[in-house]
Amino acid sequence: MKDNHLKKSIWVFHLNTGSCNGCDIEILDALTPYFDVERFGIKLVASPRHADVVLLTGPITVKTLPMVINALKAVPRPRYVLAIGACAVGGGIWYDTYSVIGGVKEFKKILEEHGVEIDKIVYVPGCPARPEAIIYGVALLLGLVKEKVSKEVVIIGEGSHH
């Protein structure tokens, strides 16, 4: 599929995996007329079968895991995931708690076991993530804006003032 097709029309599905609702309220905020995401062709859909991007919030609790896998399976490919908030990114303060998977990183391994492929994941940290950051995350996912963070690790030597 050409990326161009997705760049002009992005349908998002909101998936709460046991979040405190902080990020969910921010998502709803991002979808209000104030931020007007329809400007970018973004539309909220009610069924995962219609979605291109899944807005995932929460640390993925053990209870929600089967439903989350089912919902992601239902998304037709190419399927993108936007991990929103500290919990979704790395588990947040729950990262080693007994009842959670611990964010998308662990979740990716479980998905691989179930044969569910995710084409691209973008992380939007924050507690909660701001609506502007969520919109920016979607734009980053589709390549509408360039990544500002480089994956290279720069080691600054001793004696440096920086």
Binding site: M1, H5, K8, S9, D36, G41, D52, P76
Partner: peptide, 19 residues
């Protein structure tokens, strides 16, 4: 502001056919 152009619904349909 709304969708970028009046062709937005066509873009949506074109994308769905490519999925």
């Amino acid at each position: 502001i709304g969708p970028p152009s009046i062709m937005q619904t066509w873009y949506d349909i074109r994308k769905l056919f490519a999925k």
